[in-house]
Write a protein that binds this DNA or RNA. Structure first.
Lengths: 192, 192
DNA sequence: TTAACGGTACGGCACGTGCCGTACTTGACT
DNA sequence: AGTCAAGTACGGCACGTGCCGTACCGTTAA
């Protein structure tokens, strides 16, 4: 989605993304206009349009600049504890500013901009999911979960309730909620 | 969100929502403008603004008009089968047009319009969730699930992966996917 | 010399509001 | 019952505003 950072203009690119974050925090990412970003960053609109094809693309790069290395996940050998740590970290990131509101805005954009949806998945969702899947795979290799355990599906089941909370009910994401979800999942939702 | 249906203007209200659905299906709900709806419906813009305070409010009422009675859920005594039936029905509704795209657009709106978010929860999410919780409660009363079973949480865990699929990865919602989720949940996600 | 830049202006669209004149409903007074 | 005045919602139109994305400046820096 980034149109290849310019060699000379990299600091300008950063300045624009920084202004985007700052202005977005102040007035909300919905009300953010490219014109306002350009004005505050002391930059021509052309300079923004040259780098990003849409407001969504700009938001996405700004979001990623807040989390460049991605979340780092531990492997202590205890899969249950490690999963909990991963989800705590994800919830800490998504649950609060500045990442949370921006992420929400981006998911909003993704609902009517296919390009944003695809890129959001490729550049943020999938890389994080891959880390969780990798940790689950290690656990499976060590026989800590069943051999036929569907790792991708487990990922979706672990993440789903959190996104539901964040995007639909829009209630706070807390460690306490994570604990309740994990405890219920580990116990199993077994009717009859 | 509806500003109390007018006695005389009810058919006009319906005509506006119908035009909204029609035009939204043609050009997408993101590109939909109130001006265009007014023009096609042969109605003054005032007449729309008099009834709905925002585009989101209009979309929401249009959505609800597609599903006035809500989904009807069975109680055959088999909680596992009934849950599956519930989720099949929800997926059939959310997964395809015209309801699916409109719902997606609304969730998008909800990410930057608190009023839409609240009303969407009150008028659509919560009523559906209540039905699931009610069915789960009946099962608990009959001893088919543990007495300390957290019904609200179970609801979130059942729904979460579907919304994740719909809103984030934006892959098709199929019965097959529902089956995989349910089977995994019933089996329990038990590490170690 | 050339490319990227900041700045400005532009046409276009949709917003939300105000003001028309019209149609319809209502209710009071014959 | 018949009439009519008041009130209200309406369609249509125009307005000012904000932002879009593009084009064209003159300037700056490699």
């Amino acid at each position: 989605m980034t149109d290849a950072p310019r060699r000379r203009g990299a600091e300008r690119t950063d300045a624009i993304m920084l202004t985007t974050l700052e202005l977005g925090r102040e007035i909300g990412y919905a009300r953010l206009s490219i014109e306002a970003v350009a004005a505050r960053a002391g930059v021509g609109k052309h300079t923004i349009y040259r780098r990003w094809s849409s407001k969504g693309a700009l938001l996405l790069d700004s979001l990623l600049s807040l989390n460049e290395s991605g979340l780092d996940y531990p492997d202590t050998g205890d899969i249950a504890a490690d999963l909990r740590a991963q989800i705590y970290a994800a919830v800490d990131l998504l649950g609060g500013p500045p990442f949370g509101p921006l992420f929400q805005a981006l998911v909003g954009e993704a609902q009517h901009d296919r390009q944003v949806a695809v890129t959001l998945n490729e550049r943020f969702i999938a890389p994080q999911a891959d880390k969780t899947v990798a940790r689950l795979k290690a656990a499976r290799d060590q026989g800590q979960v069943a051999p036929d355990f569907d790792l991708e599906l487990a990922m979706a089941i672990l993440s789903g309730p959190l996104y539901f909370q964040l995007l639909i009910t829009q209630e706070p994401l807390t460690h306490e909620y994570v604990d309740r979800v994990l405890d219920a999942l580990f116990a199993g939702l077994r009717p009859s």
